[in-house]
Amino acid sequence: MELFAFTINRTPENWATALLAAVLVIFATSILLFGLSRIPSNMRRPLVGLFVFISGLFWILDWALPRSRVQEGATTSVKTLIPIYPYDYQEVINVLVNVSQVMSGIILALGVLSILRVHFKKVFKGDRDAFFSIVLLGSMAAMIVIGLWDWIATNREAVGMSTPEANETIHTAFSIVFLDMLQILDAAMFSLIAFFILSAAYRAFRVRSIEATIMMAVALIVLLGFIPLAMALTAGLPADGFLSNFRIENMKTWILLNMSTPALRAIDLGLGLGLLAMALRILLGIEKGVAVD
């Protein structure tokens, strides 16, 4: 049974066995993949295509397989009608989500490599901006050290190997770099858009063409419809009856529900179809960007 499930039951003692099994798998896969590098070049394209298609197929099955709610004791869960031995299909899906994330996570190292490359080059070439590159590399290193240290400290506290009091310095350091620096910087950069929206609107909202005029008029009505004081302007109109349609908040709601909603739905549907077509082309290996040329 264990053999088919590809698992080892863990006890506190057998960590070395588990590690050995994992290392063996890593080693075996490496050899297998190394073997791939020797296959003839006309086989490369179909091979990559096969990888793409099979990984997509898992989710297509998730779309197609019927499922049922199953009562297990006090809880209800969803099961596929056709269990894929030895797991329920939902478990397969959970693994897939992991796979994509773990692989992207490992590939992040490639991105970090790119950053290190660009900035170390600047430092060693004595670029005009070398100082700023040092600042960047320094703050990156500081964040990694503090972040990981704090994480390890927290984990040790969770199993009772350490106490929060003993790790107070590192917790404070982390909360400074995270809450008081990174988060604040995020918020500040985000809020800068207020200025850019003002200058963009100043330039773009001109009665230059029909399109620009429509956009401006609708934007202003919707805007006023959100402002309580502007609503007071038309508050003199009756609350119901025909004239109520000209109250600014009613105009806003009407535009949002009956004009903007269907227009946006239409554009969204087009985007959805484009995305689906893209996905199909990728799965079939006929999209140039991912397939081997």
Binding site: L198, Y202, R206, R208, L220, L223, I227
Partner: peptide, 18 residues
Amino acid sequence: FFALMLLILAVVVGNIAM
């Protein structure tokens, strides 16, 4: 409210200028 009023004012002035 006043920030949005400023924006509307700016748009109006820009249009008059044009």
